[in-house]
Amino acid sequence: MRTRTHPREILLGAQAAANLLPVCDHYSGVEVRMRKSLELQQQMLQEFGACVFDVTLDCEDGAAVGQEKAHAQLVASLLKASPDGCRVAARVHAVDHAAFEEDIAIIAGEAGHKLSHIMLPKVESVDDILQAVRALERASAAHVPVHALIESPAAVEQAFEIAAHPRVQSLSFGLMDYVSAHAGAIPSVAMGVQGQFAHPLVVRAKLEIAAACHAHGKVPSHCVVTEFQNTEALQAAATKANRELGYTRMWSIHPSQIRPILAAFAPAVQEVQEANDILLAAAQEDWAPISYHGVLHDRASYRYYWQLLERAQRTGMPLPEQARQWLDRSAV
């Protein structure tokens, strides 16, 4: 092979920044479930040799009223005990909640070195991001990325500006709050696994968030499927979110949802092999255009196939030898 430059460097350039998050973000807020989630993450880290899902420890819905400080302290202690190689985040209270500042001071202040990111709920505008960034800086955690949860019609209209902020790494869609914010104008069926892909206002919001993320090199994260016992419906929803709506990440609210999400976001085995073969042929020509099975390929398609290989790695798929070597080098 004559190329002297790694394919990630030569193909992606500035696009290489933010898109290497795991495809699944798993939420838990009750202590026993948080501990079990962290144990499962370690088990799957051993199984796959990579961290294939994030664990987000939840203060917003996890903390009992009046126990917000104690819950934040619990989250900080779990973060500090998490082993290297795992990705653990925290969802704090919204910036207008009385517990927000204390959440950040305790969690980011005590365990900022272990935080993969902070999830900020109820984001309405970039002003909320700025407030969170200042709080992280006061906690000496200026390095911690911010993920923003978009949950209202007004926030959807600000999605592009929010996604443009350099500290924002990902936008998530909050389906149930979004539906509730319409004062009954959207029926409750739109909160379910079928209705959320059918109602025009919900689909529009999902597309706006995905488009905002892709415009600014950020990661769009799809909302929950509350029918957690129906794994077939969950996998169908995840596949639709990925293949039709442009989402590259999805929330899980039950351990049984993690593997179906990984499977839905993973490319097909034949796609991985084709990507490997096309990129190997391209590298042998120093990334000049090639003909592969009678089809022209150049750097635009090379970029697509490289990102496909990265997605395969993030979902724990077995990789052809050359792809594995390339991806191992890109992680160094």
Rank of each mutant, 00 (worst) to 15 (best):
D128A: 04
F160Y: 10
A14W: 04
R33A: 07
H113Q: 15
A263R: 15
G217D: 09
E271M: 14
I258D: 06
A154R: 14
L12Y: 03
R33F: 05
G13I: 11
R204C: 08
L12M: 09
Q15P: 00
S172F: 01
R91I: 06
K69T: 14
R314L: 14
S116L: 04
D61S: 11
V156M: 12
H97T: 00
L279E: 05
E110N: 11
R87K: 07
I209S: 05
R314G: 04
I290V: 01
Y304Q: 14
A132Y: 00
P7Y: 07
R314D: 10
G85I: 14
A281N: 03
H6G: 12
C24M: 11
V193A: 15
Q322N: 12
Y305G: 04
L38M: 15
Q194I: 03
L262A: 13
A142W: 00
M34E: 12
R249G: 09
V179S: 04
E232N: 08
Q67K: 14
A50D: 13
H71R: 10
Q67W: 08
M34K: 11
E9L: 10
T231E: 08
R259G: 04
E208G: 03
P255C: 07
A215I: 08
A241S: 09
C86E: 14
L308E: 07
D54M: 13
A331Y: 00
G217T: 06
F197E: 13
N276F: 08
W306K: 04
E285R: 10
V23A: 14
G109Q: 10
L78R: 12
I278M: 04
G109W: 05
G246D: 04
R243G: 00
F265E: 09
I107A: 12
A163E: 11
I253G: 11
D25Q: 11
A211Y: 13
L234M: 02
A98Q: 09
K114H: 11
N242D: 05
A264E: 05
A233Q: 05
V193L: 13
